[in-house]
Design a protein around this nucleic acid. Structure first.
Lengths: 131, 131
DNA sequence: GCCGACAATGAAATTGATTGTCAAAAACGC
DNA sequence: GCGTTTTTGACAATCAATTTCATTGTCGGC
């Protein structure tokens, strides 16, 4: 039995999810993405969508956001690390960057002896249109 | 047809939950809190625990954290605004403060025309003991 | 180009936390 | 104390997410 990690196989479905994420904007739930794939005529099971999204998230290729409302939202991760400013009413999102925040988070974690540090930061508010 | 908002009544159960939150440390799930109440001999239904926690959260008296794992965790909100550094393995939490981050978040949100701004920031890592 | 091993898929069933329902009980005002 | 209204709580319902497991498709070797 080879102890190799097992390379992920290049399947039609995996590519479909990846391609879809590259063509849509904003955050979408797994179920939304599944519906979109069906509309496109792609035959991908909901289970596979979840699994693929999980894999991509683990690989750091997509962002996962968990709004207070409930279901997880996924989005293609743009290069670099960034966070999101989300409107509570219309759901529009604005990408924001905060190098100082990243640095601060890492520094604080290391100060407490934590390694393999990651963090999530989400800003919620009411945008001008919805105010 | 009184349009009054309905004053919350001061019930035994509500006080039990509130008291419990004041006496425990760290974050606990609703079901954990429910079990603790039972251990204490308090007779409170799980439904009521959820409702009470929701009410307290709405009132801003407790913090709600939603770790990647799944269930919501509640904690008595200490004065002032702070965030948490959570170990992925042992679950221990460290309170951290970052006035600069607060300020940055508000400033960014306002710059984009957002009002009624709030934010969530959680740092995950592996603590020294679990590393 | 073909075969066999083994991971990936997907439909259905399961899980598990959270929420809704509604009759019974308790709290508040008078 | 009495009546009204809120609150409670056991149970059912909901819903996203995961697991299961037989089938299918890929990959690597021949």
């Amino acid at each position: 039995m080879t102890t190799d990690a097992g390379a992920p196989r290049n399947t039609h479905q995996r590519r479909a999810v990846s391609t879809l994420l590259g063509s849509v904007e904003g955050f979408h739930s797994a179920q939304e993405l599944h519906s979109m794939l069906r509309d496109r005529g792609e035959r991908v099971g909901l289970t596979t969508v979840y699994r693929t999204l999980q894999g991509l998230a683990d690989a750091g290729e997509i962002d996962v956001m968990r709004p207070p409302g409930g279901e997880h939202l996924y989005r293609r991760c743009s290069e670099g690390h960034h966070h999101h400013l989300v409107c509570r009413s219309c759901g529009s999102t604005v990408e924001v960057e905060g190098p100082a925040v990243e640095h601060w988070a890492d520094r604080v974690a290391e100060k407490h002896g934590f390694t393999d540090v990651s963090h999530t930061l989400e800003i919620f508010g009411t945008c001008r249109d919805c105010g």
